[in-house]
Design a protein around this nucleic acid. Sequence first.
DNA 1: CGCCTAATAT
DNA 2: AATATTAGGC
Length: 582
Amino acid sequence: MVFSANDLQEWKDFPKGLKVLLLERDNISAAEIRAKLEAMDYNGLTFWIPSFCIVSTFCEENEALSAISSGLESFHIAIVEVSSSSGQGGFKFLENAKDLPTIMTSNNHCLNTMMKCIALGAVEFLRKPLSEDKLRNIWQHVVHKAFNARASILSESLKPVKESVVSMLQLQTDDEQHESRVSRDIEKVSRFVDNDHELSSGNDKYPAPSTPQLRQGTRLLDDGDCQEQTNCSTGKESGEHEGESKSVETTCGNLNAESTPQQRKSEITLVREEVESTPQQRKSEITLVKEEVDIVDASKGESVASPHTQKRKVLSNTDRNTKALIKVGVHSDSCEIRGNQKKIKVDWTPELHKTFVKAVEQLGIDQAIPSRILELMKVEGLTRHNVASHLQKYRMHKRQILPKEERKWLNLRERSYCVKRPIMAFPPYHSNHTLPLPPVYPMWGQSGSPTAGMQIWGSPGYPFWHTTAENWHWKPFPGMHADAWGCPVLPLPPPQTPGFPYSQNMPSLLNADAVDHTFTMPQSSFEHYPAEEVVDKVVKEAISKPWLPLPLGLKPPSPDSVLAELSRQGISNIPPKGSNSC
DNA sequence: CGCCTAATAT
DNA sequence: AATATTAGGC
């Protein structure tokens, strides 16, 4: 049966009219299920539909299969009983009706059976008896399949579903009268829908919705690949709102035609915050991950001149899981889309931060000012303020000036230098190597690191030890510009301790005693470190007079950093070593 | 004006 | 907790 255009237009009440194939040996059981499907009370509000589903019942597997293959009837979804007593028990159907989203049901609740069903392609396993609640959301599988199956293998029966849903959503979008939350959410969704071609390619990439989600939430997609991006904003919000908010996440993989791999832009996550909602009015949140997003949010218009013309290009780094994504979290309340969206919160994901760091390093310490960084980052929508704010924090961390809260627990030698130094950042009462260490590791600039949700700043007190160009450079004294002018002389790491996973990254300095025995400075005399101003002065002098020998405590810059600095200053020709003519 | 920093707000 | 915003100084 083929749906005509008229049929489609009539199908405004989707999922009413869902055609269900029911494979059930027991007639009585079949009748019960059928009755429930046909008389579905959908949430008691949107529609009460006398004939919610059109059910065709079969009691034999082969019959059902031939009904499908005959093409005389078109189904959207199948509910198939796993039977141990007869025939192939439903698995034959399952394997031969791949195009049809199939829900397996059984009295047998054994995990193996369930597992087998899912493994063979069932979209869901439902335990019998089938309640109305369990059946209520079966249509979601249909929509899911319709939108996520490869277009080429999309069965004819599901195409109308897709078109119908698309058309439904767009109808509402076009309705300017309704600036309701729902319509705006749908607008977002339909934009995703418009772009579904690319994402359709990964057929089973997105888990199907599952029946137990009886809340309003409709999970269109739940992309495991974007976990690292998503947990930043949605995790927080959904946590705050407990069960009152829903979270819809979508991802689409459109490549922006204009962006070449070299031009790939950074990921940025913007969160539009709720403006004036009371706890009772908590509305839903929809989070979209898109590669191209209309920035309808001019904020203060700092760098976003025309909100609606702003498109965001995104990097899509294929060799890693650093998909170029833009996430816009919308706490859509009663605020207008173009109206008063004021607060965009930039989520400084590791990727975005990496771009930031890159820009800063490219500019060099003296040139790294917000406006230039912003320029270099080429992240549209990002404002100078955003950058400035981030830069502020970046600098603070570079100088090991921890916010007071972070400093509080560093309760010893509060006024001595050591508290600001990484080596003393560990709690002093951990005086041996058994101290508990954080399970994760700071990851500044670790490109494409899959460490989802990790704070890019690292845990307080566990600063960054990596010394690659992309990472933070450890600087023991405030004001020391180790990036360009070398790093402080550190003692060599002790022999690596087997079974101590972090020893590689946390050399030697696990406690003050270790420091005292290995550090080249006078022992047990942190109080003897020069005053901050003195250090500053020394460093400044070293910077301004690079021809002079470096003071104790500083080591020369690495050749790489020198080359980088030279090239930054436009000097590309370096005379060979021997030719020292001056 | 833009930048920097610290404090404070969200 | 992470960012944004603000204020005051340069």
